[in-house]
Simulated assay, not measured.
Amino acid sequence: MTTERSVELTPVSQPATTPSQTVGPFFALPGGLPWPDGPDLLPPHAPDAVMLRGRLSDGAGEPVPDGLIEIWQSDERGRFAHPDDPREQATDFRGFGRCATGPDGEFWFRTVKPAPLPTPAGATEAPHINVTVLARGLLDRVVTRIYFPDDPMANATDPVLSAVDPARRDTLVATATADGFRFDIRLQGDDETIFFAV
């Protein structure tokens, strides 16, 4: 035989919100993921050098001062500075750079504009730079690409860029500057940069 017990339910007041915490690690701290050549993919006075500058911002448009941007790319002939690329390579081009963002979210790289690349399927990819972003609040890296404004025909037939919603493609295209290009990265919100699952 069971006996029912009456239970009085008392409304619970709304619990206080727990404080938010920033997800680390913090890459701008000394010793965080150093790279010997930093943002220089080639020597400072290389004749074909261009500057690539940008700003990393969060969903509210505020700068992310403790982010880390990495780029990797081919050289101006479509060659990679990697043992898996058996073709002749430029000896002074590193192909990889890493730059911590400053207090204003700004980053920069000294690099070259890459060449178009063949795909395994026989198509051609427009000149582009691969980008990885690491920052507070991200549990994993995000990956995007930078395309160039002076290659509209190549961009139109690029297999990756043409798969992006036409209304959002401009988030992947840099703007020209006096000494190179600018590419701002927005992590969320209006004009969020397109990121790729890799």
Rank of each mutant, 00 (worst) to 15 (best):
P159Q: 14
V164E: 15
T91Q: 09
P19E: 12
L42D: 06
R53D: 08
D48C: 04
V112F: 01
P86K: 11
A174C: 12
R186K: 10
P15W: 06
P120V: 12
L68I: 00
I185S: 02
P149K: 11
F107D: 01
Q21I: 13
V160C: 13
F148D: 08
P65Y: 00
D104N: 09
Y147R: 14
P86H: 05
D48I: 03
E106A: 10
A126W: 04
T157D: 14
F96R: 09
P149F: 02
G105L: 07
F27C: 08
E62L: 10
L138R: 11
N130W: 06
P30M: 07
P34V: 03
G97W: 03
P103H: 03
P116H: 08
E192N: 07
P116C: 11
L29F: 02
P34T: 01
R110H: 03
L187W: 00
Y147G: 06
G38Q: 13
V173H: 06
V112W: 06
D150Y: 00
T132N: 07
P83S: 11
D75F: 00
N130A: 14
A49K: 15
L139F: 10
W108Y: 06
P127N: 04
Q188L: 10
E4G: 15
R169H: 13
N155I: 03
L138D: 12
F93A: 05
S6G: 12
A115W: 00
P11F: 13
P63I: 04
T91L: 09
I185K: 04
L68E: 04
F80N: 05
G189E: 07
G105S: 08
A28L: 07
L117S: 14
L41Y: 01
V64K: 00
G24E: 09
G54R: 00
W108C: 11
P118H: 12
D184M: 00
S57P: 05
T22W: 04
R77N: 10
D37K: 14
D48T: 09
G59K: 07
A126Q: 05
